[in-house]
Amino acid sequence: TTTLTYTDEEEARKAAEELKRRGITFTYTKRGGTWEIRIK
């Protein structure tokens, strides 16, 4: 499992869109002031 952490929502959203485009499965979690993208 790879976890990407972002403090900028815009960056996190761009990363999530890129992963979706590649067909990669991930979970997206907001934790306080950070956003976590966990790639399975």
Results as ranks from 00 to 15, higher is better:
Asp8Phe: 05
Thr34Asn: 10
Gly23Pro: 01
Arg31Leu: 12
Glu11Tyr: 04
Ala15Ile: 09
Glu36Leu: 11
Phe26Ile: 02
Tyr28Thr: 06
Tyr28Ala: 04
Ile24Met: 05
Thr1Phe: 15
Thr3Tyr: 10
Arg13Ile: 14
Gly33Ala: 13
Thr29Ile: 13
Lys20Leu: 13
Gly33Val: 09
Thr27Tyr: 06
Thr29Phe: 10
Lys30Ile: 08
Glu36Tyr: 14
Trp35Val: 08
Tyr6Pro: 00
Ala12Glu: 00
Lys20Met: 13
Thr27His: 05
Thr2Ser: 08
Asp8Met: 06
Asp8Ser: 14
Thr7Asn: 09
Glu9Arg: 07
Trp35Cys: 03
Thr2Asp: 07
Asp8Ala: 06
Thr2His: 11
Thr5Val: 14
Arg38Leu: 12
Ile39Val: 07
Glu9Gly: 06
Glu10Trp: 13
Lys30Met: 08
Arg13Cys: 08
Arg21Pro: 00
Leu19His: 01
Lys40Glu: 15
Thr7Arg: 07
Gly32Arg: 05
Glu11Met: 10
Arg38Gly: 04
Lys40Asn: 14
Arg31Cys: 09
Asp8Thr: 13
Arg21Leu: 10
Lys20Asn: 09
Arg21Tyr: 05
Ile24Arg: 03
Tyr28Trp: 12
Ala12Tyr: 11
Arg22Tyr: 06
Ala12Gln: 01
Leu19Met: 04
Asp8Asn: 14
Thr29Arg: 10
Gly32Gln: 09
Lys20Thr: 14
Glu10Met: 13
Thr25Arg: 13
Arg38Met: 13
Arg21Ser: 09
Lys40Trp: 15
Arg22Val: 05
Lys20Tyr: 11
Arg31Val: 15
Thr7Ala: 08
Thr5Glu: 05
Arg13Asn: 10
Arg21Thr: 06
Thr29Leu: 11
Thr7Phe: 13
Arg38Asn: 10
Lys30Asn: 11
Arg38Asp: 06
Leu19Glu: 00
Glu11Lys: 07
Tyr6Trp: 03
Glu9Pro: 07
Glu17Trp: 11
Leu4Gly: 02
Glu10Ala: 13
Lys14His: 09
Arg31Asn: 14
Tyr28Ile: 15
Glu9His: 05
Gly32Thr: 04
Arg22Ala: 10
Thr5Arg: 12
Arg31His: 11
Lys30Trp: 08
Thr2Phe: 13
Ile24Asp: 02
Leu4Phe: 14
Gly32Trp: 04
Trp35Glu: 00
Lys40Pro: 14
Leu19Gln: 01
Thr1Ser: 12
Thr3Arg: 07
Arg31Met: 11
Thr3Gln: 04
Arg31Tyr: 10
Arg13Asp: 05
Glu11Phe: 04
Glu11Ala: 11
Thr2Arg: 12
Arg31Trp: 06
Thr1Pro: 10
Ile37Gly: 00
Lys20Gln: 11
Thr27Asp: 07
Ile24His: 03
Thr29Tyr: 10
Arg13Tyr: 07
Thr27Leu: 06
Glu36His: 05
Leu4Thr: 04
Arg22Asn: 08
Arg38Gln: 14
Ile39Lys: 01
Thr29Val: 12
Lys40Asp: 14
Glu17Gln: 11
Glu17Ile: 11
Arg31Lys: 13
Arg22Thr: 04
Glu18Thr: 07
Thr5Asp: 02
Leu19Trp: 02
Glu36Ser: 04
Gly33Gln: 13
Glu36Gly: 01
Ile39Gly: 01
Glu10Ser: 13
Thr29Ala: 09
Thr25Glu: 15
Arg21Gln: 09
Ala15Val: 14
Ala16Lys: 04
Phe26Glu: 00
Gly33Ile: 08
Ile24Gly: 02
Gly23Ile: 01
Glu10Thr: 13
Arg21Met: 09
Thr7Asp: 09
Lys14Tyr: 07
Leu4Trp: 14
Ile24Glu: 03
Thr27Lys: 04
Arg13Glu: 08
Ile24Phe: 10
Ile37Met: 02
Arg22Phe: 05
Asp8Leu: 08
Thr25Ser: 14
Ala15Pro: 00
Thr5Ile: 15
Tyr28Phe: 15
Arg21Glu: 07
Leu4Pro: 01
Arg38Pro: 00
Thr3Gly: 02
Arg13Met: 14
Glu18Trp: 14
Gly32Asp: 14
Glu11Ile: 06
Glu18Met: 09
Leu19Ala: 01
Ile37Tyr: 01
Ile39Leu: 07
Gly23Thr: 02
Thr1Leu: 12
Glu10Arg: 14
Thr34Cys: 07
Thr2Met: 13
Tyr6Asp: 00
Thr2Lys: 11
Thr29Trp: 07
Arg22Cys: 08
Arg22Asp: 04
Arg13Ser: 06
Thr1Gly: 13
Arg21Val: 06
Ala15Tyr: 09
Thr34Phe: 15
Glu10Asn: 14
Lys40Gln: 15
Leu4Arg: 05
Arg21Asp: 06
Glu36Pro: 00
Gly23Cys: 04
Arg13Thr: 08
Glu11Val: 06
Glu18Asn: 08
Trp35Asp: 00
Thr34Tyr: 15
Ile39Arg: 02
Arg21Gly: 05
Ala15Arg: 04
Thr3Leu: 14
Thr34Gly: 07
Glu17Phe: 11
Thr1Lys: 08
Arg13Gln: 12
Thr29Gln: 10
Thr1Arg: 06
Thr5Gln: 08
Tyr28Lys: 04
Tyr6Leu: 02
Arg13Gly: 04
Thr5Tyr: 15
Ile39Ser: 02
Thr27Glu: 11
Gly33Asn: 15
Arg21Phe: 06
Gly33Leu: 13
Thr2Tyr: 12
Ile37Glu: 00
Thr27Asn: 04
Thr27Ser: 09
Gly33Tyr: 09
Arg21Ile: 08
Ile24Leu: 08
Arg13Trp: 09
Phe26Met: 02
Ala12Gly: 03
Thr7Cys: 08
Thr2Ala: 10
Ala16Cys: 09
Lys40Val: 15
Gly23His: 04
Thr7His: 12
Thr1His: 12
Thr5Ser: 08
Thr1Trp: 15
Tyr28Pro: 01
Phe26Pro: 01
Arg38Trp: 08
Asp8Trp: 03
Leu4His: 06
Leu19Phe: 10
Thr5Pro: 02
Glu17Arg: 12
Glu17Ser: 10
Thr25Gly: 08
Leu4Val: 06
Glu36Thr: 09
Lys14Gly: 06
Lys14Glu: 09
Ala12Thr: 01
Tyr28Met: 15
Tyr6Arg: 01
Thr5Lys: 09
Lys14Thr: 09
Thr29Ser: 09
Ala16Ser: 05
Gly33Glu: 15
Trp35Leu: 02
Lys40Ser: 14
Gly32Ser: 06
Lys40Thr: 15
Asp8Gly: 04
Lys40Phe: 15
Glu10Ile: 12
Trp35Gln: 01
Glu18Asp: 12
Thr5Cys: 07
Trp35Thr: 03
Lys20Phe: 11
Trp35Asn: 01
Ile37Val: 03
Lys30Gly: 05
Thr7Pro: 04
Phe26Thr: 01
Thr1Glu: 14
Glu36Trp: 06
Tyr28Val: 15
Arg22Met: 12
Arg38Ala: 12
Trp35Ala: 01
Ala15Glu: 04
Glu9Val: 05
Thr25Asn: 12
Ala16Thr: 05
Arg22Pro: 01
Thr27Met: 05
Lys20Ala: 13
Leu4Ile: 10
Ile37Trp: 00
Leu19Ser: 01
Ile39Trp: 04
Glu18Ser: 09
Phe26Asp: 00
Glu11Asp: 09
Glu36Met: 08
Arg31Thr: 13
Lys14Leu: 11
Thr27Trp: 07
Leu19Val: 01
Tyr6Asn: 00
Lys20Asp: 08
Glu9Leu: 05
Gly32Tyr: 05
Thr3Ala: 04
Gly23Arg: 04
Ile37Leu: 04
Tyr6Lys: 01
Ala12Pro: 00
Glu18Ala: 10
Glu18Gly: 06
Leu19Ile: 02
Glu17Asp: 11
Thr7Gln: 08
Ile37Asp: 00
Tyr6His: 01
Ala12Arg: 01
Arg31Pro: 02
Arg22Ile: 06
Glu36Ile: 15
Lys20Trp: 11
Leu19Pro: 00
Lys30Ser: 08
Ile37Pro: 00
Gly32Glu: 12
Ala12Ser: 05
Thr25Pro: 14
Thr25Cys: 10
Thr3Trp: 08
Arg38Cys: 11
Arg38Lys: 13
Asp8Val: 11
Leu4Ser: 03
Tyr28Gly: 02
Arg38Thr: 15
Ile24Cys: 05
Glu10Gln: 13
Ala12Val: 03
Ala12Lys: 01
Thr27Arg: 04
Ile39Cys: 03
Glu11Cys: 07
Glu18Pro: 01
Lys40Cys: 14
Asp8Pro: 01
Arg13Ala: 07
Ala15Met: 15
Leu4Cys: 13
Thr34Val: 15
Glu17Pro: 00
Thr7Val: 09
Ile24Gln: 03
Glu10Tyr: 12
Ile39Phe: 12
Lys20Glu: 11
Thr29Asn: 08
Arg38Ile: 15
Glu11His: 07
Thr25Phe: 12
Trp35Met: 02
Thr25Gln: 14
Thr25Tyr: 11
Thr2Val: 14
Phe26Tyr: 07
